[in-house]
């Protein structure tokens, strides 16, 4: 059985997005199944065109901080961060699960989410997935 790690993404910040991309792509490269469950504010990460702000920066600079970090990471040789994730999704090593209840709570429609997402799942489905996981981590 390949190793499996499951992550809960509950915030809409650039920091959470960055951890998802870096850990997700690296885990996939290491042949680990990387599953992400997007709940509460985390659901916004999956919306098409959403650009997360930096939680660690003071209020007026949050969005600017996101653009700044993205530019710096490009200088580190990063490709477009969603394109990096897409490779892992296409290999089946990264799976992005929107939380179904959150979508109703936050009034997010499925058509607003990126096509690379899996079908939305509820708490029971995610927890069953965790039965077989080697680690479950809340980002």
């Amino acid at each position: 059985m390949p190793k499996q790690m499951n992550f809960i993404v509950s915030k809409n910040s650039f920091e959470e997005f960055g951890m998802m991309v870096i850990l997700g792509t690296t885990g996939a490269a290491m042949e680990t199944q990387m599953n992400f469950f997007f709940t509460f504010w985390g659901i916004f990460q999956l919306k098409k065109g959403y650009k997360p702000g930096v939680a660690g920066m003071p209020f007026p600079f949050k969005k600017l901080g996101g653009a700044m970090f993205r530019k710096m990471l490009k200088g580190f040789g990063y490709d477009d961060m969603w394109e990096m994730v897409k490779d892992g999704v296409e290999e089946g090593k990264i799976k992005l699960y929107p939380c179904s209840m959150t979508m109703d709570l936050m009034r997010v429609k499925k058509k607003q989410l990126r096509e690379i997402c899996e079908e939305p799942v509820g708490a029971a489905a995610f927890l069953e997935m965790c039965d077989n996981a080697d680690a479950v981590i809340s980002l």
């Binding site: 792509t25 690296t26 490269a29 290491m30 580190f76 040789g77 990063y78 990096m84």
Partner: peptide
């Protein structure tokens, strides 16, 4: 010139 995790991803 590449920083973590890019050397790993390209090596893979």
């Amino acid at each position: 010139g590449l920083k973590c995790p890019m050397p790993i991803l390209k090596a893979k």
